[in-house]
Simulated scan of single mutants.
Amino acid sequence: MFKDRTDAGKQLAKVFDNYRDENVLVLAIPRGGVEIGYQVAIYLNANLSLLISRKLPFPYNPEAGFGAVAEDGSTFINECAARGLSEGLIESIKDEQIREIKRRIEVLRNGEPLPDMKDRTVILTDDGLAMGSTMNAAIKLCKNRGASKIVVAVPVAGREVVNRIGNLVDDIIVLDIPPFFQAVAQVYENWYDVSDNEVLEIMNKVKT
């Protein structure tokens, strides 16, 4: 059990000693993954930026999703989950999330492009993996951008998702893999939705 995302990030960071000498770029997925990424980045004295990846939600159940899209258009679709959705509806939902991605780039990253990741070790962070869709899309983006090594780092995830995501990357680090995994929030004492303002506060600390 983690007290909060700060505690989880600090615990996760301690696993990365063997990455200290690599040319590391930490990319946090907003908003929940930003504090995690911040703790890893300061521990490694590494660069930190935000990679925007959004779940593609069901129109009748926004909490659940059938895939995800990243800011370069890299898309992951769970074919089983998306069964029954028309191609037009999927594209409409994707367009809506791309608009939110553009908003987040402007607000959370000040409109700046992603750092160059060619020939670099990229550590992707989030506060946990549920279905793994947003992480899957983020991984595709990093591969498209020429990252030499991709590492996924999260405090918690279910075994099935760990195995599936682990097959896509060079390394995956997960501190807690509960035998009965239901939701990311189950391992946090203090769980809440992170605001844009909190993300900006974290990123402002990186600049000071």
Rank of each mutant, 00 (worst) to 15 (best):
N204W: 09
K205A: 10
V161H: 08
N78M: 03
V34D: 00
G88F: 01
F16W: 05
I52G: 00
I98M: 15
V161G: 06
K143E: 13
G158H: 09
R54H: 12
V184K: 08
R31K: 10
A185Q: 14
D116K: 12
I139S: 03
R20Y: 04
S133N: 14
V187K: 14
V107K: 12
L124T: 02
P57R: 05
V122R: 00
S148H: 08
P178W: 01
D4M: 01
N61H: 13
L51K: 06
Y60N: 13
E71F: 04
R104L: 00
L108A: 05
F181Q: 06
D126M: 07
D7S: 07
N47P: 08
I101H: 09
Y38D: 01
V161A: 12
V34C: 01
R31P: 11
V15Y: 15
W191T: 08
D126W: 04
G128I: 05
A64M: 15
G166A: 09
L56C: 06
G37H: 10
V122G: 02
A138L: 02
I42V: 14
E112S: 13
L44Y: 02
A81L: 15
E112H: 13
E71R: 09
S53M: 01
R5C: 03
N45G: 15
A185C: 14
Y60P: 02
T6M: 11
E35S: 11
L200D: 06
E160H: 12
S195H: 02
A8K: 02
Q11Y: 08
P30S: 03
A147W: 04
E198P: 02
G73C: 05
M117Q: 10
R103I: 06
G65Q: 06
V107M: 07
E91A: 15
Y38L: 08
Y188I: 10
M117R: 12
L56Q: 04
P113R: 07
P30V: 09
D17F: 10
C80Y: 14
A157E: 06
K143T: 04
N190F: 12
A46Q: 02
P113C: 04
E100C: 03
G37L: 00
R145I: 00
G65E: 09
K205D: 05
V187W: 08
N78V: 08
I177K: 07
D17E: 15
I105G: 03
I52H: 11
L124K: 06
V187M: 10
R145P: 03
A147C: 13
V24A: 02
I52N: 09
A130I: 08
Q97W: 02
G37W: 07
Q11T: 07
L25M: 15
R54P: 10
R5Q: 03
K94S: 00
S53A: 14
A82T: 10
D116A: 09
I202G: 02
L27Y: 06
L50M: 11
I42A: 00
E79S: 13
G84R: 11
G88L: 07
E63V: 10
V161Q: 11
A183T: 11
E71V: 01
I177D: 03
L27T: 01
A81S: 14
V122E: 04
R104N: 10
A82G: 11
D95E: 14
K10S: 10
N163K: 14
